[in-house]
Nucleic acid binder design. Structure first.
Lengths: 250, 250
DNA sequence: AAATATTTAAACATCTGATGTTTTAATATT
DNA sequence: AATATTAAAACATCAGATGTTTAAATATTT
C-alpha cells in the first residue's frame, strides 16, 4: 500500500479563523450564548482585515454555530445547532445521492417497527390522547394536502420522541421530510389518506393495549402500504422508475 | 390556537444570493461541474458589491455545494455535496445534543442486525474475502489504536454497502464515526480488541453460510458486547455517567 | 410620575477600489 | 523538444468610507 498523506488545501484566512472558532466550540471553550468580539475588534486581534473575519463568521453561521445580530448590543453569539440546519445539509446531500423510494422504505422498516415496540411499553395516557387527536384531525381535514403532511409527520415524530432517542428522532424525522417532498409530487389520492388513517388507528390500538408485537406488525404493514400507495399513484412532474427512483419528467 | 406566521428574517444580500443559487441547484438548473460567473461578473449581474457576492459563495462552499478554485481558469464550480460535509454537520449537531452511548447502541441494534440479514442473501465470494482480510489485518495489528478504528469502520461500512442503501450507509457510517470518538477516550484494552475480532469472525461465518438469522443474532450480540466493553473500560479525560452519557472530566 | 418621542452610539451591512497571490496558458529560450 | 519566462484571469486580502439596525439613554409631553 502506498503513502496516505492527507491532501493539503491552501489555507484561506477566513477558513483558518472559522476552524479555530469551531474547534473552540467543540472543545467546550465557547459556550452557548457567549458573545464573540465585534468584527472590528476580532479582526484586529487576528491581525486580519474585517472582510476576512466576516467571511469566517458567515461560514460559522452557515454551520448553524453562530447567530449574528445587527444593531446596538448586537454581535456574534454562539448558538446551539438546530435541527433545520442538519436537515438542510441532509437535503443537499441526498439531492445528489438521489435515493429511491425503496431505500427510504427499507430503513423505515428497520427502525419504526422497533420504535413502536418500545412505545408499547412506555407510552402514557396523555401520549395516546395526542395520537388519537392527531388521527381525528386528519380524518376531519377535507383535502388540506400540506396540513395532512404536517399531521403525518407529527404522528411519526411523536412515536420516536417517546423513545427519547435523539439520534433515532433525527433519522426518522429526516426521512419523513424527504418522503413528504416525494408525496407532494406523486399526488396521493383520498384512498391513500383513508388508508393512512386506518393504519394509524391500528397502531394506536396496539399501543393502547401495550402489545409490542402487534404494534410492530401494524407499523411494518403501514410502511409497506405507504410505499405501495406511492408507487401506484399518478405522478406529477416526476416519474418513478422501476427502482422506485424519482426522476424529473421533462 | 393563535396565528402561525413564520418569523421573517431581515434579508441579507449574501443570503438572498446564496439562496437563489442553492435553489437553482436543487431545481436542476445548475449541474455538477458547471461554472458560475466570476466574482466580478456575477456581482455586476446581481447589482451588488463583490464582498456581498463573496460571502454568498463562502456560504455555499460551507454547504458543500460549491468548490472555489483560485488562479487562471479558476472560479466557482457546482460540486456534489460529499459525505464529509454532512458528517461535519452531524458532528456539530450532536455536540449539543450529546447523545449517550445507549442511544448509539440502540439505533445500531435496530439497523445492523437487519443489514446483515440482507447481506447473508446477497453477499459474494469477493466480499467475504474482503471481510476476512479485514479481520486478519485487525488481528495482526499489534497495538495500532487508530488503525484498528479504521478497520472496524471499514468492516461495518462494507456490510451496509452490500445492501446498496445509501441512506442506511450514511446513518451507520455516521454512528461509527461518533463511536470512534468515544472509543478514543475510553481506552479500550486488548481484551476488547480480541472480542471484536471474535465477533466479526462469527458474523462472517454466518454470512458465508448464507444464514440470515445467525448473522443477525451474531451482530446483535456484537453490538451489545461493544457497549458493555465500553461501559466497563477505564476512561481517560471523560467519564461515563450512569446513563452511558459521556462527560468531560475536569 | 408615566408615557411617549427623540437622540445617540455600538455593531453589523454594503460598497469601492487598490494590491497581492495562484494558477494556467501562451510565449520565448535553450 | 524540453525548459524557462511572461502574461492574464480569477480569487484573496486589505483599507476605509458610508449606510442601516437596534437598543439604550435622554428629552419631551401629558
Amino acid at each position: 500500500m502506498g503513502f496516505k498523506f492527507e491532501t493539503v488545501k491552501a489555507s484561506r484566512i477566513s477558513e483558518n479563523i472559522a476552524q479555530q472558532i469551531r474547534e473552540a466550540i467543540l472543545d467546550g471553550e465557547l459556550k452557548i450564548g457567549e458573545q464573540l468580539p465585534s468584527e472590528k475588534d476580532f479582526a484586529n486581534h487576528f491581525g486580519v482585515s474585517k472582510s476576512s473575519l466576516r467571511e469566517a463568521y458567515r461560514v460559522l453561521e452557515a454551520y448553524g454555530l453562530l447567530e449574528i445580530r445587527q444593531g446596538m448590543s448586537g454581535g456574534a453569539f454562539i448558538k446551539k445547532v438546530d435541527l433545520s440546519t442538519v436537515k438542510d445539509s441532509l437535503v443537499n446531500f441526498f439531492f445528489f445521492q438521489n435515493p429511491g423510494l425503496r431505500e427510504y422504505t427499507e430503513i423505515r422498516t428497520f427502525i419504526e417497527p422497533q420504535v413502536v415496540k418500545i412505545c408499547a411499553e412506555k407510552i402514557t395516557a396523555k401520549e395516546i390522547e395526542f395520537l388519537e387527536n392527531n388521527i381525528l384531525a386528519m380524518e376531519q381535514e377535507p383535502d388540506g394536502k400540506n396540513f395532512i403532511s404536517d399531521l403525518d409527520i407529527a404522528f411519526h415524530k411523536k412515536l420516536v420522541d417517546i423513545t427519547g432517542n435523539k439520534i433515532i428522532s433525527l433519522v426518522v424525522e429526516t426521512i419523513q421530510t424527504a418522503l413528504i417532498n416525494i408525496k407532494r409530487i406523486v399526488h396521493t389520492d383520498d384512498n391513500f389518506l383513508k388508508m393512512v388513517c386506518d393504519d394509524h388507528k391500528k397502531i394506536v390500538a396496539a399501543l393502547k393495549a401495550h402489545d409490542p408485537e402487534a404494534a410492530s406488525k401494524a407499523m411494518l404493514y403501514h410502511i409497506d402500504q405507504v410505499e405501495k400507495g406511492m408507487l401506484a399513484s399518478k405522478t406529477g412532474t416526476m416519474i418513478i422508475t422501476e427502482n422506485g427512483l424519482l426522476k424529473r419528467n421533462k
